[in-house]
Design a protein around this nucleic acid. Sequence first.
DNA 1: AATGAATGAGACTTCATTCAT
DNA 2: CATGAATGAAGTCTCATTCAT
Lengths: 204, 204, 204, 204
Amino acid sequence: MGSSTTQDRKSAKREAIIQAAAAVFAERGFAGATVAGIAASADVGKGTVYEYFDSKEDIFLAVFELLMGQLAEDLATQHPGGSAVEQLRVFSEAFVAWINHTSEAYSLTLEFWAAAGTSPMRDRLMAAFRQGYLQYREFIADILHQGQEHGEIRPGVDVEAVATALVGMWDALGLQAWMFTDLDVESVNRGFLDAMLTGLIPQA
Amino acid sequence: MGSSTTQDRKSAKREAIIQAAAAVFAERGFAGATVAGIAASADVGKGTVYEYFDSKEDIFLAVFELLMGQLAEDLATQHPGGSAVEQLRVFSEAFVAWINHTSEAYSLTLEFWAAAGTSPMRDRLMAAFRQGYLQYREFIADILHQGQEHGEIRPGVDVEAVATALVGMWDALGLQAWMFTDLDVESVNRGFLDAMLTGLIPQA
Amino acid sequence: MGSSTTQDRKSAKREAIIQAAAAVFAERGFAGATVAGIAASADVGKGTVYEYFDSKEDIFLAVFELLMGQLAEDLATQHPGGSAVEQLRVFSEAFVAWINHTSEAYSLTLEFWAAAGTSPMRDRLMAAFRQGYLQYREFIADILHQGQEHGEIRPGVDVEAVATALVGMWDALGLQAWMFTDLDVESVNRGFLDAMLTGLIPQA
Amino acid sequence: MGSSTTQDRKSAKREAIIQAAAAVFAERGFAGATVAGIAASADVGKGTVYEYFDSKEDIFLAVFELLMGQLAEDLATQHPGGSAVEQLRVFSEAFVAWINHTSEAYSLTLEFWAAAGTSPMRDRLMAAFRQGYLQYREFIADILHQGQEHGEIRPGVDVEAVATALVGMWDALGLQAWMFTDLDVESVNRGFLDAMLTGLIPQA
DNA sequence: AATGAATGAGACTTCATTCAT
DNA sequence: CATGAATGAAGTCTCATTCAT
């Protein structure tokens, strides 16, 4: 033990290619990226890339999985304890942190979305996106439901609708963070959450 | 009057090509679409396309402008009268109507976003998107501000943050409508608006 | 009489197209020129060009004939009287005048030469060039022969060789005039003629 | 030693493509030649050509440089010793040798001249031609000047004019050799040189 | 395992030519 | 007669992928 196995070396190089590819795809898009460019960026030969991946699409999907995994990991580290409101804050802040960390390479995400719409990979990407969205929507809905049970959230609230809207809203924040680099996403998130919790209109 | 002029015929054919191109781009994406395919789809010769457009990118941008124009038009037909809350409902419903009307070809929108990130057209597209977002954000913020002045909206609300979040949320609804074809966007919008207006947490 | 006939108008327009084409071919070469460009330059519709010419090559050949005709005309106006030496001077000066008049558009001549080498028109052009060269060579040879008969030219001179070399030399002066716009072709011609008549080496 | 390196193989293939291209350009001209044809003629794939050259123009320029290099090489092998007259003979014979060796592919030279006039490569070609002409003109002028200093050449001779005319004349011999395949260039050159040295007109 | 030279499918684009008006 | 919209053949160039070393 301690000595790096062949397996290790293999996956290490594979990882390096994925990292390099992520940068290239973010910079040029899927269509604009070339396998030669990825290979050069990863400092390996063009042929070597094909030792680890079957095709350009294959690389793209690997990058996609890496990104999705990072997001899931980031969110998973959050301890879900506390009140519903507390959990909403914690979750949204974790997401915002991810946004801030990712926004520079957000074009990569857009590439994935576009590919989910039109490329031959659409099925696999679309399935992943759907699953991700459903998962987070459900996660938020659970929090809200629990909040309703505990009397923290008003009973009249359409939990499903709110969860759906919220998940989309947070996702869209990533887009806006990328578009408007000076946007203070954290502040927007906080300001919005506060307003939504208390309500826009004055109570009687 | 009534006789079709040369000008008419020219712009009519141009329009036909744009329509055909929109369908092809939506189906295959920018990179996947071929000019030959667009020409065939518009039922004209390959060379004819180049009588009306300088390049494939040019066609793409024309389609983009068509879509943006349609959206702006749809929203512009809304009479802005009534209370702030009323206006939010009206605006959001117009937007939701556009979503329902466009969701099938939403992949086209995703193509535009992706192109805004990486293609050589990025500057033009990005500028248009930024401007669009800003415009709608400001529009919503205006409504909220007026609401505050009239006492309809609570004074403590961070209007800018809410407007930013709302615009993103509505945009993201389009994405979800496309992803989940059975999603009732109208209902989500209404449920969310109601909850946000009154607030998630019970008042004292 | 005096009223322009249909025939006149036709050939006038044809002439205009040839003139315009000459400029365009000189500017862009045969391959680089477009029929559309020629039409625009002649201020007629693209289709009109095809009323007067069967093809782009046809236009090119018409321009060629125009240029050749001009040269022949210029040289024909020279009265061939006088001694052999006198005639050489007169002829060469006429040629030099043509060079000075044409050098700006010399690239057109180069286009013809190139076309004589490789284009489908090669046979027609080559034949014309050959005939032209032969004609002038013979013309010069005649002068020299007569000079020999009259004792003006040394009997030992290889008249055919000298005529061949001279014709080529004058032709090449055109090329150099075009390449080096500040070259004083007239002076070169005179200086060379003088030297050649008397001889480069000192006489015993 | 004796083992071919990668470098060798690369430049060997590059050379092969240039050779093939020279033949194709000579046969069809620049515009008429196709990269596919060149590739086929070089017995490599179409894409391979682009591994060695950036564009069709690039190939053309490489062929040009090859030809120019061959000429310079041929002339450089001449030992410049002897009297001025002797040197003129030697130089002109070397040039004539090159003509005889090249005349079959002279259309290639015409292509270069035409390209120097109108193609996008005009600047590079024109510069090379100008430099070549100047170089040879100066070379001849030097010989003549030295001849004058040594009393071999008459003092009254306009050396610059004669040098300019001679260089053009030799160049034009190449053209005539190509046009009239049965022309005995060597004989023409000798006959002309003899006549010019002694002078056309009888001495007193 | 690693490489990069070789390849050819395929796409954009140009433009000579036709023909209906 | 004049026109210019329409066309498709043809050509350059890119690049994912293969495979011999």
